[in-house]
């Protein structure tokens, strides 16, 4: 079996590797995701991020992995004009918006270092693939409808690019903001971003979604990124070169 799905970091993670004897490689990828969860989970009081937030670890004693993620978060905050921000209103920091993409990218690098050319890693709907699928054809990825789970509304061949979707949950015509439940958050149901790798796609999908209807225009202005944004009425807006990834 060269394909496995497990629940890690509170989400389904699917790893597919197209070559013989992939069992150990798949174990190595899941082992990596477990490590990430132990270091970055806000649900574990003994995780590095929890101990950092509670003042048990000084900034100077942080691991290289934590520094890497926090530096990337700060870079994204600046590039997104503050729309992406790991600072929590309650104090401390919450880098989880960027950890997923970072963890997938590192998992892909782990496979590449071991000479794996054909794989697909899907962590909670954010996907890095490379090479070809089990039929020897380019990987085909679907974009899920934000309104009906299980319905595919676009089919893409990312050709090695990363694909990430950020979205909210639609309830009637309203999207709710937990920080201000009485306020309508946005007219956008979801935005899917294609980037040079999954980390780029993920961090800019998160930032663009926070911008509401302006998100797709923000991505249009970023070189090497494309987006498909869906509003609550089911109308989609796409960046100018998105079409080159589309099969149907």
């Amino acid at each position: 079996m060269n394909e496995q799905t497990r629940i890690v970091m509170g989400m389904p993670v699917a790893v597919a590797i197209v070559q013989d004897g992939a069992k150990d490689l798949i174990e190595a990828v899941f082992g990596w995701f477990d490590q990430v969860d132990q270091r970055f989970s806000l649900y574990r009081s003994d995780s590095e991020i929890s101990r950092f937030n509670s003042g048990q670890i000084p900034q100077g004693a942080l691991s290289d992995e934590m520094r890497d993620v926090l530096a990337m978060a700060e870079q994204t905050r600046q590039e997104s004009h503050g729309f992406f921000d790991v600072a929590r209103p309650s104090g401390g920091c919450d880098p989880t918006g960027i950890v997923k993409g970072w963890a997938i990218k590192k998992a892909a690098l782990l496979l590449a270092k071991k000479g794996v050319q054909n794989y697909c890693i899907n962590a909670g709907g954010d996907i890095q693939s490379a090479g070809v699928n089990f039929d020897g054809e380019p990987w085909r990825l679907g974009i899920s409808s934000p309104f009906r789970s299980g319905e595919i509304i676009k089919v893409l061949t990312p050709d090695g690019a990363g694909v990430a979707t950020s979205g909210s949950y639609v309830r009637g015509q309203h999207i709710w903001n937990p920080h201000a439940p009485a306020e309508k958050l946005s007219d956008i149901a979801s935005i899917t971003v294609i980037g040079p790798d999954i980390l780029e796609a993920d961090r800019f999908a998160t930032a663009a979604f926070a911008m509401g209807k302006d998100g797709v225009y923000f991505i249009e202005g970023m070189p090497a990124l494309e987006a498909y944004q869906i509003d609550v009425s089911g109308m989609a807006t796409q960046t100018s070169a998105f079409e080159r990834y589309v099969i149907s």
């Binding site: 974009i143 789970s149 990430a164």
Partner: peptide
């Protein structure tokens, strides 16, 4: 809605 096989699905 699109028909046809896909290898993986991206969504929130």
């Amino acid at each position: 809605a699109q028909s046809g096989r896909v290898d993986a699905v991206s969504g929130a």
